[in-house]
Design a protein around this nucleic acid. Structure first.
Lengths: 338, 338
DNA sequence: ACTTGGCACTTAGGCGTGTTGAGTGCTAAC
DNA sequence: GTTAGCACTCAACACGCCTAAGTGCCAAGT
């Protein structure tokens, strides 16, 4: 009853089950893999594995399927990340390098990842904690309505319409723009509010109320920045794996639409040594994802923002992890260049 | 064999079938509706309706269900648009009025419409044909990389990173910005390229190559504007109506993800007298939507951009049409105000 | 010229039954 | 620690039966 062989059996079960979606039995196992022992021996090993909670039998007498715990062990101790094929790498590079602005890069990234993995791909907007103010623009749209634009060093542009006193004019705006710019240019986004406050305090009384309103708008922008948004693609891939979800894919789609859920999920994922982190089935805090796995990793400066995929627990982990890691690397590189 | 009664029978069949998802038979029909005749008479009417291709029987002897053609007649000649309830109207107004920028408005709109109709909602970015240039901003991100920002009168902000000669400096940019601004401020977006070209032609030789690059970037922005993007929400609602789609919702999700498909679909939809236009089942050019209906209408200036919902052909048309119409009206109003 | 009751006919769907095949657990021998 | 053998279990499938719902049509009624 050697320990290494038991792991080998688990690996075989996971691989076969992922491949065929059918419970795998002892006989089929010895046929498809060179285990060097008979099916009876495998049966003994399987009984052990079941006792440890790594595999389970859907009904009294049929093959076994991996449990969440089994997948976990597989991912942690057995699986080896498969490197991508050369054409795949080329495709990634070609697609990402021809993008122009940030939105475009992220959009291409998710689509690519979705296609590569045949799963749903998600990418979080880059964290701006490390970014700083590149530029501020104030545009008078109509009396009493000013468009505030904040451009950060990472190329992100955010805008917002702010109501202001109706008598505000272009000259005052130009003045304020200049004051704000000299004060906060290059300032890190997290410290923007305090800098703005001190700047407003120094304003001449005539500009106080206008300045206050605009500073408020700017703060709102940098705050909205924080609770980032996510972009996703490949929901159609869920439909293909409809058989892997017990009742329906409804709850999964709901989770995906609730950006809050996905954001919490992504931010909670720690990175392990390999840099790619995995949540399997019920390890996910959200009930609707009990049959789903999430594979994600950080990218960009400090790897704070996440990119990843979501699919059924019955998923080809090695390949998917490789794709996520590769895409994250290229993405980081592209962003560094801008 | 009165014609009005036959229409009444069709209405009853549509309503019952939408309600119960089950083929409706002659007996059930006379029980649930006050038709004043016996089931045998209804059977005769149904045979007629079937001959005309308005209803069909899934198998030899079971109730009838409406065909696409039947739904079409129902929508065109029978259904009356139900006004929304007062609380619903209030909810619409409250939700939309508290939005700030364009993205936010559109995002709230789709979510609202999805919730209101229990279907997938889509909204197209407002057409900018009628919009004109409000402001242009050029920001030097790094040597040889300039962020070009174009702000239009409808509050839309578009950005793009443009590669330029590495020796371009802040002063040159400020100069160009001023020249561009005086030349194209207030110009309609469609005529932006020609105006820019003439502006570039007048530039001193030293600025030619830089000006050329930037003008190119600006043109790209106004062109990208055209082939608008769409926002959607409520895909989880599709899962709920999974029984209404023959095999799977896969093809539908694919169509929704292919923005090109949706854009063509929306732009092809003509408005009828009521202002809400409907595409039923196979009337849709795209095969994946053979079992789906799209209800859409224009909004905003000249009603060029579209907002609508997509769902199974078995859908509550009167209510859904009312919701789409109402949301489009509020949306137009909000946009007018900015 | 419609409408209606009656009746023979069709068929999906539910239900019990039997059969098959894959797979297990256990025991006894190696 | 491994293996062959065997009895046992159970999902899945097929078959046959029956029922309920619904139809089409005909002949009689208004």
């Amino acid at each position: 009853m050697s320990e290494p062989r038991r792991l080998e059996v688990l690996r075989a079960i996971v691989e076969d089950y992922v491949h065929s979606r059918e419970p795998v039995g002892s006989k089929a196992l010895v046929e498809r893999h060179q285990l060097g022992v008979s099916s009876a021996t495998i049966r003994n090993d399987m009984a052990l594995l079941e006792e440890e909670g790594l595999i389970t039998a859907p009904h009294t007498s049929s093959g076994r399927i991996p449990t969440d715990k089994g997948y976990r062990l597989f991912v942690d101790r057995i699986a080896e990340v498969k490197p991508l094929s050369a054409p795949e790498k080329r495709a990634i590079r070609a697609l990402l390098e021809s993008a122009d602005d940030l939105d475009d890069v992220l959009d291409r990234t998710v689509r690519l990842l979705a296609q590569l993995t045949n799963q749903v791909a998600v990418v979080q907007y880059p964290h701006l904690g490390a970014a700083s103010v590149r530029h501020i623009e104030l545009v008078l749209l109509a009396p009493g309505r000013v468009l505030v634009v904040l451009i950060s060093t990472n190329g992100a542009v955010q805008q917002r319409v702010v109501p202001v006193p109706a008598d505000a004019n272009e000259n005052e705006l130009a003045d304020l723009r200049q004051r704000f710019l000299t004060k906060v240019s290059g300032v890190r986004l997290p410290s923007l509010p305090s800098e703005l406050a001190s700047c407003v305090a120094e304003l001449p009384p005539a500009l106080q109320s206008l300045g206050q309103a605009l500073a408020h708008g700017l703060e709102h922008l940098s705050a909205a920045n924080r609770e980032d948004r996510i972009v996703m693609a490949g929901t159609a891939n869920l439909a293909r794996s409809t058989l892997d979800f017990p009742l329906t894919i409804g709850p999964v789609l709901e989770a995906l639409e609730e950006q809050v859920v996905m954001l919490r999920l992504l931010s909670e994922m720690e990175q392990d040594a390999l840099g790619v982190s995995v949540r399997i089935g019920r390890e996910n805090p959200y009930g609707g994802l009990a049959e789903a796995s999430v594979i994600a990793t950080g990218y960009g400066p400090d790897a704070l923002a996440k990119v990843g995929v979501l699919g059924p627990t019955r998923m080809d982990y090695p390949t998917t992890m490789a794709a996520v890691r590769a895409v994250a690397r290229y993405l980081s590189r592209i962003l560094d260049e801008s």
